[in-house]
Design a protein around this nucleic acid. Structure first.
Lengths: 147, 147
DNA sequence: TTTATATAAGACCATTACATCCTATTTAAA
DNA sequence: TTTAAATAGGATGTAATGGTCTTATATAAA
């Protein structure tokens, strides 16, 4: 459904958010350890999220990645997905037609419509704060615990 | 959402169904022309669908691909998707966790649940006959008309 | 039984997604 | 002003997906 890059991006954003609440910046090393992802590749994705102004980076000693506390509740899942994967997941044609709309629909156009709009709705109505709180409370998990 | 192979597989199956209603077998050449896909690659996918017993092939002169008329209305979109892409699209974890269930959910597990089940429901309740009839009646299209 | 016309299938090539490596550049603190 | 610790980013490598090519096999009909 999402690319690996997008999966890592979502998980990384959640972890950064959690730490930003405690005023802690985190490094790609910490992040990749916590979300169980390749470090260098994760760093690339973080740069992408910085360019899209979803997270902030501070270079140099004592630097790292952070999200402004006030921004955490305003960042939607849809923003992260669009930054990394684009909007093809809920705007492209299900069967790959370049032109596919209500006037010239592909065979599954109407049937997909509902599913796609549900997905879009979900991504646009889920923010980082909700996801971060679930992790903090132990309701959800960023990786499989190995202890 | 689906792989290219799966997109071609769905479109090819619809085209074969339409022709099978008129007792006409079709070749990979005709199919790829009609659904605007690479011929040799399409042939590979057709072989896959034959192995999964979704379509039938007849080798030799006057051969081609067909679907038994009675079977057309019983073939679900979900069967084609599973044959080509597997069931990861609606069974795997949205964030790629190897273990992700109600007891140990990823951050988006609950939010995805509904969307995934809607997708699954749609794929399992759409059959080839419905899709073929829409094409025949000109309600939907397999490619962009270039005339 | 030969021929023309089909699909089957393995080997191969191309492109994209995934991932790593190495070298800048930035910055706080000694 | 030097050093250590951090991100930035280009170059490169690897694996999966997408796509082609060539040869084998099957079969209806001449």
């Amino acid at each position: 459904m999402f690319s690996k890059a997008c999966e890592y991006g979502i998980k990384a954003s959640i972890f950064i958010a959690i730490n930003s609440y405690e005023n802690r910046r985190v490094s790609p090393k910490e992040i990749s350890k916590e979300i169980d992802s390749p470090q260098a590749f994760t760093a690339k994705i973080l740069q992408d999220l910085v360019r899209h102004q979803i997270i902030k980076s501070v270079q140099g000693a004592h630097g790292g990645f952070e999200i402004e506390k006030d921004a955490i509740s305003t960042i939607k899942l849809s923003q992260i997905v669009e930054a990394i994967d684009g909007d093809s997941i809920y705007s492209g044609c299900g069967l790959g037609l370049h032109v596919c709309d209500d006037e010239h629909p592909c065979p599954v156009h109407d049937k997909f419509k509902f599913v796609r709009s549900e997905l879009k709705h979900m991504l646009e109505n889920t923010n980082l704060e909700q996801l971060a709180l679930d992790i903090k409370s132990g309701t959800s998990f960023l990786k499989i615990d190995k202890d």
